[in-house]
Design a binder for these strands. Structure first.
Lengths: 357, 357
DNA sequence: GTTGTTTGATGAAGCGGTTTATCACAATCG
DNA sequence: CGATTGTGATAAACCGCTTCATCAAACAAC
C-alpha cells in the first residue's frame, strides 16, 4: 500500500542499499554513494512521497527512539498538581529537540500499580519515572529487561539515576527568609512522609533555626501534606493554640498546602502576612493566585524534566561523563505573603513588619 | 540477545508457527494447535521468560496499538489549565482498558506548529487532537497518511470526528440560573473567539435572556478569554460603568476567567455574590478554590477524553455504529458564588437574595 | 605492469514476528 | 472401500529496513 524503499530503488535504478544509505546520510559506514546517484535517489523519493517506516527501522536497528514517561500513582496528583504538567513540558522540550518520542504511562484508577509496570514493553528504550513509590515494581521490570531509567524526585541510591532539586537548601531559604524578617516562632507543615524531599526540607528548616539560636519547637513541625485540605486542617490545629502560642510564620509543604494555610488563617479572622506569614514551596503558577500572592521556594520543575530526559538520552547514546544524580538549585521567589514587600529586611532601611511576640 | 519465538519453538520441539498461534490464542485462523503442544509451548515460553517483541509484531501485522495525543498549541494552556490533565486521565483510562498505548505530542515553545505535525509518523494508528487550531497542518498530514483522528473540542464539520460537550445548553444553564435568582442585568465574558465553544455558550446565554424577556445589552457581552488575567481586566472595565450600570451577575468564559472576575469585584470593594454573582464554566478542581467557591457549568472533561479514545479505537477495530460527533451533556454545579446557597430559587420557600436594580 | 587502495555499488542475510499454502494422517461417510 | 472432511502441524514467504560481505572498476604506487 504505502511506498517502500524498494519502490524508490526501482525508480532511481539503484539498489535498496544505496537508497538506505543515501536517505540516512550514512557517514561512518562502509557504504558510499556518489553525488549523482544520491540525487537520483532524492528525486525518486520526493517524487513518490516516500517516508521511511519507523517500525521496520526499529526492528532492523533495535532502536525505537521512544522514551517512556511514567506519571505518579495518584489521580489527584496528576489532575490537580501543576507539577506533572511542568515536568512534562520540560521533558517534551528535550525529547523533541533530540528527535525522540514520548510514550505515556500512568497508573490511574482502575489498574493496579503492577499492571502499569506490565505495560512497559520493549517499544521504549528508556523510562522516566516521576516520584516513584518506594518499592515500585517498575524498576524490577526495567532491570530485568535492561531498560535504563531515570527518576525525578526520588531518593538517590547507589547506582541509581535521578534528578532532584536542592530540597535541603530550599528548606533553609524559607527559614532564612522568615528569620530575617524577625520571626521567632515558626511552624513547618511537612509534606508526605514517604518522600525524601519532605525530610530534607524539614532538615534545612531545622538547621537554620538552630544556627540562628531560635528555640526549635518540635510541636510546631507537624505532619501535613501536598494537598490544600491537609494544609487547611493542619493550620487550623496550629491556630487552636491561642494567640500566645500560635506561630507567627508557617512554612508549608508546597503551594497548594500554603493555600490551605492561608485560608485557615483568614477564616480565623487573622491576616496574612500581618498576623502570620506564609511561605510555600514549588512556585507553580498557582503561587501567583493565592491571596496574597505567595512567597515560595522556586523549584526548577521544567528544568528537572529537561535534565532527566537529557540524562536518559545521553545514556542511551553512550555519551560519557554524565552526572547520574544532579541536584538542581532552588531559589526564593518573594511575593506578598510574608510582608517582605512592605519592609524587606531587618537590616534594610525600612522597619521590619510588626511581629507578635 | 533477548529470547525469541525461535528459541521457544526449539525448546518446545515445535514449529515457530505453532508457537505464534498458541501464544496469540488464535481463534479465527486456519492454524490449529492441540492442547498437548499448546502446553508444551506455554511451558517453554515460561521457562525462557519469553515476551513477544511488539516491534516485530507491528511490522508483521501493520498494527502498532499506539494512539497519538496532540496537546494544544500553548505552553500556558498546558501548564496552567487543569483541562488537559483531566482529558488525559480520561483518555488513559480507555487506552489502557483497550490495551493500547499513548504517544504524546505537543507543540511547545521552540518548535513551530508544523514541526509538530511532522513528528506524527506511522508509529501511531490514530490521533487524538485537543483543541486544534483552525487550519492545523496535522489534519492534512493525517489525511495524507490515512491516519484516522478524533478531535476534542473542535467545531464539528462534515465528515469529521469530534467530541464536544453541549456548549449551547451550558450557556443556557448559566443564564437560567441567574434569571431564576432574579438578575436583570447580566454580563458575559466570552472566551477566545476562534473556538466555536465560545460562540455557542454566548448563544445559549443570549437565547435565555430573550426568552425571559430581559433586555439584551450587547455592551455587556464582552470579549475576554480563558485566562484569569483576561477575566480580571474585562471585569474591571465593566465595573467602571458605575453602580447603576454595572451588571449584577457575570457569566465567565471558564473557571479561571471567573477567578479573575471575582478578584476584580472584590478589589473594587464589592462582594461576591451579594453585589455581583459569578458563574464559571468547566468545573475543574479549581472551582472549589475560588472565594467564594464557584457556581459553574460542569463539563464532563474526563468523559470527553474517554469518549474520544473509545471512538478512535472503535474506528480502528472496524466497529460499526459509532456516532462520529457526540455531544456530551453538561450540568450546573451550584456552589456559593451566586448566592443560591442562601436562597436557592425565587419559586422556593426562601427569599431570593437582594439584587440591586 | 603488477599490486594495493580507494570509490561506488550491490546481493543477501538478518531483525522477530505473522500468515498463506501445503501436507500427513485419522476420522467420517455413502 | 474409495472419497471426503477435519485435525495438527510446518516450511517458506513476507513486513520494510539496515548492514555485512563482496565485488568491479578506477586510480595510485612501486
Amino acid at each position: 500500500m504505502a511506498v517502500t524503499i524498494r519502490d524508490v530503488a526501482k525508480l532511481a535504478g539503484t539498489s535498496i542499499t544505496a537508497v538506505s544509505a543515501a536517505l540516512n546520510n550514512t557517514s561512518g559506514s562502509t557504504i558510499r554513494v556518489s553525488q549523482a546517484t544520491r540525487e537520483r535517489i532524492y528525486d525518486a523519493a520526493a517524487q513518490l512521497g516516500y517516508v521511511s517506516n519507523p517500525i521496520a527501522k526499529s526492528l532492523a536497528t533495535g532502536k525505537t527512539k521512544v522514551l517512556g514517561l511514567m506519571l505518579p500513582y495518584a489521580d489527584a496528583f496528576v489532575d490537580q498538581n501543576p507539577f506533572s504538567n511542568q515536568v512534562m513540558s520540560g521533558i517534551m522540550r528535550e525529547v523533541v529537540h533530540r528527535h525522540y518520542n514520548l510514550m505515556l504511562y500512568t497508573a490511574t484508577s482502575g489498574i493496579q500499580k503492577d499492571r502499569a509496570a506490565m505495560l512497559v514493553d520493549s517499544k521504549i528504550e528508556g523510562l522516566l519515572v516521576v516520584m516513584p513509590p518506594e518499592d515500585s515494581a517498575i524498576f524490577l521490570k526495567c532491570k530485568k529487561r535492561n531498560i535504563p531509567y531515570v527518576s525525578i524526585l526520588d531518593r538517590p541510591t547507589a547506582g541509581s539515576w535521578s534528578v532532584n532539586s536542592d530540597d535541603y537548601t530550599g528548606g533553609r531559604m524559607a527559614a532564612e527568609h522568615l528569620v530575617k524578617l524577625g520571626h521567632k516562632r515558626m511552624a513547618h507543615l511537612m509534606g508526605s512522609p514517604d518522600v525524601s524531599t519532605s525530610h530534607l526540607r524539614a532538615k534545612g528548616f531545622r538547621d537554620v533555626l538552630e544556627e540562628a539560636a531560635i528555640e526549635l519547637r518540635e510541636d510546631l513541625i507537624v505532619q501535613s501534606g501536598f494537598d490544600w485540605r491537609l494544609g487547611l486542617d493542619s493550620t487550623e490545629q496550629l491556630l487552636q493554640r491561642g494567640v500566645k502560642e500560635m506561630p507567627t510564620a508557617i512554612f508549608a509543604a508546597n503551594d497548594l498546602c500554603a493555600e490551605g494555610a492561608i485560608r485557615a488563617i483568614r477564616a480565623a479572622g487573622l491576616s496574612v502576612p500581618n498576623d502570620i506569614a506564609v511561605v510555600g514551596y514549588d512556585d507553580t503558577w498557582y503561587a501567583t493566585l493565592t491571596q496574597p500572592p505567595l512567597t515560595t521556594v522556586h523549584m526548577p520543575i521544567e528544568e528537572m524534566g529537561e535534565m532527566a530526559a537529557r540524562m536518559l538520552i545521553a545514556r542511551l547514546e553512550g555519551e560519557d561523563e554524565i552526572d547520574p544524580q544532579p541536584i538542581l538549585p532552588v531559589s526564593l521567589t518573594v511575593r506578598n505573603s510574608c510582608g517582605a514587600h512592605l519592609a524587606p529586611f531587618v537590616d534594610g532601611t525600612k522597619q521590619s513588619p510588626p511581629v507578635r511576640q
